[in-house]
Nucleic acid binder design. Structure first.
Lengths: 243, 243
DNA sequence: CAGTGGTCTAGACCACGCG
DNA sequence: GCGTGGTCTAGACCACTGA
């Protein structure tokens, strides 16, 4: 390990990068104590505050943890790198090692209802795409998905859009990236109609997921109501303790 | 705004708290520039580095953002202050405007099973606290919660711990903050026993939530299996695109 | 007790944004 | 040119841990 004081790259940054690679390649093992801040500062001939800046950043990023009076230690590797964050059905299934596909059940350009206009934050008398699809994984029905997308946010939609990723189309059409989503999950029992489409028994447990998705501009562009089979789907996610 | 240099509370912490409350009560508006770091350090008669520590923390927590050569500014409010992130049942219910309470159903110090030892990443023949509680909101049963906590991570547990926050106790006992959790959600139907405790009908939709919670060191300290009433509970969360 | 991280000081020089 | 945040120094005292 070595730093270059003359480099235009900040010293604390050089330290961070080297420690990160030492952690990745196993040179520094989980729970192993690092040299103390004073040792580093002597070894490199730099101030302790500079060392602290490097270590503090790595603590914030979750690579290290500190214990008062004991030292600084390497964190255990993060959980599975299972594509956290906002994903489409397609991405979700792929990350589970399954082959996703879709069956279009219904498509209409409908008039906005008051409820939808409120959720999607669009003009009230306006046109909205309604797309109902059965989603399959390895050709087994997994979910029924009803999407509502304001016409103004997507323009005309054709078969090709339903087969591929609507998200990409939307990002391009609005020249604004997708930013975040609000999701609500609750358990339910399959209705007769849902049971038929999902090939399960009426009354079987299903997971109802309502999602509203937003662009970076803060405008909602999509509202989705999904019904997932309870026997084949578990929703997994990670949460951080913020503050 | 005023700080107390004699207080045992760190100066940077005093500044953070006061800025946070100024942001919350609207005294500091989104996108408004803060006084410069040098101004703060003169105003309070403290070093600029101390001011920087306060501001840097608030930047990390998302309350402020900085621009080189321009200044430090207040961030736009987050999606909702619905307390996203990792929360306890108690915090969750409070944020929904309800009064949480608990009824202890069962407590035992059990021997580890292979499954639990695996999930909690602890020695196999070891002792584990098993705590089963009915969780209520406004005195209405909301969920059944079975918690498993390795004895080594918590020491002896008494009634007082079950009434208040076990999380705080754990953070202190291990002198390591809680960091993140993995959660799995799936729909189910209430068994006879669950139905009785939750005061619902057998077979009614319930939401099964399994959570494993980790310290900053990456060690799991808790595994919880909860059954939530489907008619009274909706799980809400936010997801970001990319990361 | 010696060593650790936590906090704090009073300076310094730099690159950047703006008028 | 002047004020901003970004980086860095060489010290200091504290509370905490562990032997």
């Amino acid at each position: 390990m070595h730093i270059d004081k003359q480099s235009p790259i900040p010293i604390y940054y050089q330290i961070m990068e080297q420690l990160k690679s030492q952690i990745k390649n196993g040179e520094l093992q989980p729970d192993a104590p690092l040299p103390s801040e004073r040792e580093y500062s002597e070894q490199f001939g730099i101030s302790r505050m500079t060392v602290r800046q490097a270590l503090s950043n790595l603590v914030n990023e979750g690579f290290l943890y500190r214990q008062k009076g004991r030292g600084t230690f390497v964190s255990r590797p993060k959980m599975e790198q299972t594509l956290q964050g906002l994903t489409s059905f397609t991405e979700d299934m792929k990350s589970r090692g399954m082959v996703p596909s879709s069956k279009l059940v219904d498509y209409e350009l409908i008039d906005s209802t008051a409820e939808l206009a409120g959720i999607l934050d669009c003009e009230h008398p306006s046109k909205i795409h309604k797309v109902i699809r059965v989603r399959l994984a390895n050709d087994i029905p997994m979910a029924i998905e009803a999407s509502y997308i304001p016409f103004d946010m997507a323009g005309e939609l054709h078969d090709s859009h339903f087969q591929t990723s609507i998200y990409e189309h939307i990002e391009q059409y609005n020249s604004s990236p997708i930013s975040h989503a609000k999701q609500e999950l609750e358990p339910s029992a399959a209705t007769q109609e849902e049971a038929k489409l999902l090939e399960i028994k009426k009354g079987a447990p299903v997971l109802l997921i309502k999602r509203t998705t937003y662009l970076q501009s803060g405008i909602a562009f999509e509202h989705v109501k999904s019904i997932y089979r309870g026997d084949r789907y578990t929703f997994v996610h990670y949460m951080d303790r913020l503050k």
